[in-house]
């Protein structure tokens, strides 16, 4: 194998990107118009745009998840946070707040949820998976409760600002894509242009060594959960504005699983210690492309779940040392 080929094969970017390309090619071969992009009502339309468009909420949540996983943690409560954020939006709209205030209230709700998780993990030192389970169980109930603050009979709403942010467009490009790109950039700057990323990765990689090197591990972990809460809140704003309603019971069901999956597909290890923001977005796109491709190929949308499961299992299998060894010895036995 030539050196350059080896370098490509060993690069962690290659498999997820290859998977994405492969899915697109398969989808393109099934549906001839797959790559077509049209302009309808002053906005770009087409399958590729649709994949980007629909991947935004998952990608946002996954970015927060990537940061938390970087600290060797996990955040199961993201779906519940989205439910709470949706309920807060509708509640404040019914109360007649200015819509820009509502946006900030929604984000504040997400931050508050993140602070709760961060408190449990960093101050009470509860295992992340257990700590965030609490909000995961209670969060949707809290959302339903907030819905009752205004009677809860009609949770639908109209908001020009929020809907513009979610489903509108600037020139030809959907607003949510532009905003998501802005958030990604901001997060990237925060992680890579301050020392936060280094600290998160060092705490996730070796908390004891980080402490001895002078890093405030507890604070770093806390901040990671707050970031995850904030990003989930943004996803919540987009999803709520998209459906014009607050539905705490079923909104963003299983989104935590998709988000974790996106991080894992993007090469992040649940053992922590590394944050790959760009690859996480690729991971989210892979998941969405799978869904879209399943739909287009005429398979019932439900098959998507099975395909996803098989993808997770094969990714995990390829990552496992034991399985690699077994495959390696099988291959070399063949070769000899």
């Amino acid at each position: 194998m030539p050196v350059w080929l080896k370098a490509i094969v060993q690069s962690r970017a290659v498999w997820p990107v290859l998977a994405l390309v492969l899915i697109l090619i398969v989808a393109g071969s099934v549906s001839p118009n797959f790559f077509e992009i049209r302009i309808v009502e002053g906005r770009l339309f087409g399958n590729l745009i649709d994949i980007l468009y629909r991947a935004v909420p998952t990608a946002l949540v996954a970015l927060g998840m990537a940061v938390v996983i970087g600290t060797r943690g996990i955040d199961l409560s993201v779906g519940s946070i989205i439910a709470i954020v949706g309920a807060v939006i509708v509640w404040r709209i019914k109360m007649g707040d200015p819509h820009i205030t509502i946006l900030f209230s929604a984000l504040a709700a997400g931050i508050l949820c993140g602070m709760w998780n961060g408190f449990l993990v960093s101050a009470l030192r509860i295992q992340p998976i257990i700590a965030t389970l609490i909000l995961m169980v209670a969060g949707r109930g809290i959302g339903m409760l907030i819905n009752q603050l205004y009677g809860g009979t009609d949770p639908s709403f109209e908001s020009a600002l929020l809907q513009w942010m979610s489903t509108g467009s600037i020139w030809l490009i959907p607003t949510r894509l532009i905003l998501a790109a802005g958030i990604f950039l901001a997060l990237w700057l925060l992680i890579r242009r301050t020392a936060l990323g280094l600290f998160i990765e060092s705490v996730g990689g070796n908390a004891a060594a980080s402490n001895l090197a002078g890093v405030k591990a507890g604070l770093i972990i806390f901040v990671a959960y707050v970031l995850s809460g904030l990003l989930s809140a943004w996803a919540g704003v987009i999803m709520t504005a998209d459906t014009h309603t607050s539905d705490p019971v079923s909104v963003a069901l299983y989104i935590e699983l998709d988000a974790i999956l996106a991080v894992v597909i993007g090469g992040g290890s649940l053992a922590g210690g590394r944050i790959y923001l760009g690859m996480t977005v690729i991971g989210a796109l892979v998941i969405q492309a799978l869904t879209t491709a399943t739909l287009i190929s005429g398979l019932p949308p439900e098959y998507n779940l099975i395909i996803k499961a098989l993808v997770v299992l094969s990714v995990l299998f390829l990552q496992s040392a034991n399985a690699r060894k077994a495959i390696g010895s099988l291959v070399s036995r063949r070769a000899s």
Binding site: L270, A309, L313, F317, S320
Partner: peptide, 15 residues
């Protein structure tokens, strides 16, 4: 494969 049960059974859930 020495993978967290969480992830394996998550795949199990989807499947």
């Amino acid at each position: 494969c020495d993978i967290q049960p969480f992830i394996v059974t998550l795949a199990g859930l989807f499947l």
